[in-house]
Write a protein that binds this DNA or RNA. Structure first.
Lengths: 214, 214
DNA sequence: ACAAAAGTGTTATTTGTACACCCATGC
DNA sequence: GCATGGGTGTACAAATAACACTTTTGT
């Protein structure tokens, strides 16, 4: 029956991708003891809320980013992670189109995951590192489609996969597989003003995405 | 900075298997408000401990069961799950050899997962149901090897897989695959006094198991 | 005409699936 | 000698991997 003071938070690792780089959304926190410092977006799980509800609230703070559904990425419970109190983090990843890079919110910014500010609050540097590993370990590659812009070419998608999973893929085999997977649909639009044959744009198959819920 | 009273617990779903049945370890709780009722083993995450440490403590309560490493299986945070206070559960599965069925601890018993006591505390019935689904969804079947006794025949292992994943497998193909996986080793022991050709006993390849850490 | 990326098909290899009979043992 | 489960090999299908050239477009 002992109930020592403990706080549970959801801490979100929002990820997007552009030009062979992953970006993570950071926030300048404005409450003690982290006032003015960079960290991941986080929200306390209130006593009347579930974790799922809290995640919905967290995502709602960023309506313009069209975040994916949350994907559980780990628990962080080191008693020393917060300097003042006991805070256990349930971390979740959210995926977002790079369009989000241009949508700015007050006190927020996207940072390249390999060039983070020198100090982040608590263990957020660690959480981001682990989240990247987690992402690379995903055997279901579907979430990566959420890192693509609204419309994208097959080469762009292939480059994204190659970057994140640190592999090189055969163009023909890659195309056969992704097209036959049903996750993407061709459009009738093609690149314009490129000094080579114009590539067809594809889009996420939203029907399939809805069914599969990542 | 609000710190409403919240408790974090690890709640363990210890599983074993015998004769086409899964068993889960239940405990008669002896503290209010659950005095005398069946539920999963659980341990509060103390303010000085991490979740991992708490899991080690939980496993240490059952030294005779040779539990596997814990496998994260879900968070349960419904504010109403505990009648008196806010308790969020981090649930983990532990796998155990059926030898454990004979090792009795005070106030504990193994129950067939499909014939649980009519009422379990909190949402434990739900957690067990979800854990079973989680187990079935594991694409890495290796944890199931921890449900086998010290030595087992290939037919026993096949039957276990068939039961849990609710499939039927071809004997020859199953054998080829499991043997070539390197997860098990044949012994020179064979069944005795059976009214048919004696089967070879196999054991878990502990070297491989250690490397793979489930 | 040339540079740059798009787009495409075939073959070989590997992996998975289907399938049926003989073997050893206790009764 | 028969009932019981143990143990094995081969042929086919499917999935994956390797591989090179032609097309389109801007400069």
């Amino acid at each position: 029956m002992s109930s020592s003071a403990m706080q549970l938070t959801t801490e979100g690792v929002c990820i997007t991708y552009l030009n062979k780089q992953l970006f993570v959304l950071l926030q300048i926190h404005n409450q003690k003891p982290f006032k003015g410092k960079w960290g991941l977006p986080m929200l306390e799980v209130k006593s009347i809320h579930t974790i799922e509800k809290t995640l919905r609230l967290l995502a709602k703070s960023y309506p313009s980013l069209s975040l994916s559904a949350p994907v559980f990425a780990g628990l962080y419970s080191d008693p020393a992670r917060h300097p003042k109190s006991r805070v256990v983090a349930a971390t979740y990843m959210f995926f977002s189109s790079p369009d989000a890079l241009e949508k700015s919110q007050p006190d927020h910014a996207w940072h390249p995951i390999d060039k983070l500010p020198s100090s982040l609050i608590m263990d957020h540097k660690q959480i981001i590192k682990k989240s990247k590993q987690f992402l690379q370990s995903l055997t279901n590659h579907a979430p990566l489609l959420y890192l693509m812009p609204e419309r994208f070419t097959l080469s762009e998608l292939q480059l994204c996969m190659e970057t994140l999973f640190d592999v090189t893929l055969d163009k023909r085999n890659f195309r056969k597989k992704i097209i036959s997977s049903g996750w993407i649909n061709p459009t009738r639009q093609r690149q314009q003003n490129v000094a080579h044959k114009a590539a067809t744009y594809y889009t996420l198959n939203k029907k399939k995405a809805k069914e599969s819920s990542i």
